[in-house]
Design a protein around this nucleic acid. Structure first.
Length: 94
DNA sequence: TGTGAGCGG
Protein backbone atom coordinates (compact mmCIF):
# COMPACT_ATOMS: atom_id res chain seq x y z
CA UNK A 1 0.00 0.00 0.00
CA UNK A 2 1.67 3.08 -1.14
CA UNK A 3 1.04 6.25 -2.96
CA UNK A 4 3.14 7.17 -5.94
CA UNK A 5 4.08 10.73 -6.55
CA UNK A 6 5.22 12.28 -9.76
CA UNK A 7 7.93 14.88 -9.29
CA UNK A 8 8.56 17.23 -12.15
CA UNK A 9 10.85 20.20 -12.73
CA UNK A 10 13.52 18.19 -11.05
CA UNK A 11 17.03 19.65 -11.19
CA UNK A 12 19.50 17.33 -12.88
CA UNK A 13 21.86 18.09 -10.04
CA UNK A 14 19.57 16.31 -7.63
CA UNK A 15 20.04 12.75 -6.48
CA UNK A 16 17.58 10.22 -5.15
CA UNK A 17 19.13 10.68 -1.71
CA UNK A 18 18.34 14.37 -1.68
CA UNK A 19 14.89 13.75 -2.98
CA UNK A 20 14.27 11.06 -0.43
CA UNK A 21 15.46 13.30 2.36
CA UNK A 22 13.13 16.00 1.16
CA UNK A 23 10.14 13.75 1.00
CA UNK A 24 10.89 12.17 4.34
CA UNK A 25 10.05 15.52 5.84
CA UNK A 26 6.52 14.91 4.72
CA UNK A 27 6.30 11.31 5.82
CA UNK A 28 7.63 7.87 5.13
CA UNK A 29 9.33 7.40 1.82
CA UNK A 30 8.92 3.94 0.46
CA UNK A 31 11.18 4.45 -2.50
CA UNK A 32 12.52 7.10 -4.80
CA UNK A 33 13.11 6.55 -8.48
CA UNK A 34 14.69 9.09 -10.74
CA UNK A 35 13.54 8.57 -14.25
CA UNK A 36 16.19 8.25 -16.87
CA UNK A 37 15.91 7.47 -20.50
CA UNK A 38 16.42 3.78 -20.93
CA UNK A 39 17.78 4.20 -24.43
CA UNK A 40 20.12 7.12 -23.95
CA UNK A 41 20.71 6.87 -20.22
CA UNK A 42 20.00 10.55 -19.76
CA UNK A 43 17.92 11.82 -16.88
CA UNK A 44 14.51 12.83 -18.03
CA UNK A 45 14.31 15.56 -15.45
CA UNK A 46 11.65 14.10 -13.27
CA UNK A 47 11.22 11.38 -10.74
CA UNK A 48 8.76 9.19 -8.93
CA UNK A 49 8.53 9.07 -5.18
CA UNK A 50 6.60 6.34 -3.47
CA UNK A 51 5.13 7.35 -0.15
CA UNK A 52 3.86 4.98 2.49
CA UNK A 53 0.33 6.26 2.59
CA UNK A 54 -1.93 8.55 0.70
CA UNK A 55 -1.96 10.98 3.61
CA UNK A 56 1.81 11.31 3.55
CA UNK A 57 1.72 11.65 -0.17
CA UNK A 58 -0.76 14.48 0.11
CA UNK A 59 1.40 16.04 2.77
CA UNK A 60 4.42 15.74 0.53
CA UNK A 61 2.58 17.53 -2.21
CA UNK A 62 1.71 20.41 0.04
CA UNK A 63 5.22 20.56 1.44
CA UNK A 64 7.33 19.94 -1.61
CA UNK A 65 5.19 21.09 -4.47
CA UNK A 66 6.71 24.37 -5.57
CA UNK A 67 9.56 23.94 -3.14
CA UNK A 68 12.79 25.50 -4.44
CA UNK A 69 15.48 22.92 -4.97
CA UNK A 70 18.88 23.88 -6.33
CA UNK A 71 17.37 26.93 -7.92
CA UNK A 72 14.39 25.12 -9.35
CA UNK A 73 11.07 24.51 -7.77
CA UNK A 74 9.73 21.02 -7.67
CA UNK A 75 6.41 20.05 -9.09
CA UNK A 76 4.87 17.31 -7.03
CA UNK A 77 1.64 15.68 -8.04
CA UNK A 78 -0.03 12.34 -7.89
CA UNK A 79 1.32 9.75 -10.23
CA UNK A 80 -0.71 8.61 -13.17
CA UNK A 81 -2.26 5.23 -13.43
CA UNK A 82 0.32 2.59 -12.79
CA UNK A 83 -0.59 0.67 -15.87
CA UNK A 84 2.68 1.67 -17.45
CA UNK A 85 5.05 -0.63 -15.69
CA UNK A 86 2.84 -3.66 -15.94
CA UNK A 87 5.50 -5.35 -18.02
CA UNK A 88 4.66 -3.40 -21.10
CA UNK A 89 1.17 -4.74 -21.48
CA UNK A 90 -1.95 -5.14 -19.46
CA UNK A 91 -2.78 -8.44 -17.96
CA UNK A 92 -4.27 -11.10 -20.08
CA UNK A 93 -7.21 -9.27 -21.50
CA UNK A 94 -9.92 -11.59 -22.58
C1' DT B 1 19.43 18.30 -21.50
C1' DG B 2 12.84 21.01 -19.35
C1' DT B 3 5.93 20.04 -18.91
C1' DG B 4 7.43 15.91 -18.15
C1' DA B 5 4.71 9.46 -16.65
C1' DG B 6 8.18 4.52 -14.45
C1' DC B 7 9.87 -1.24 -17.93
C1' DG B 8 13.88 -2.45 -12.84
C1' DG B 9 15.21 -6.37 -8.78
Amino acid sequence: MSSNLHVGNLPFEANGVELRSLFEQAGTVESVRIITDRYTGRPKGFAFVEMATEAEAAKAIQLLNGCPMKGRNLVVSRARQEQRRGGGRWRNVA
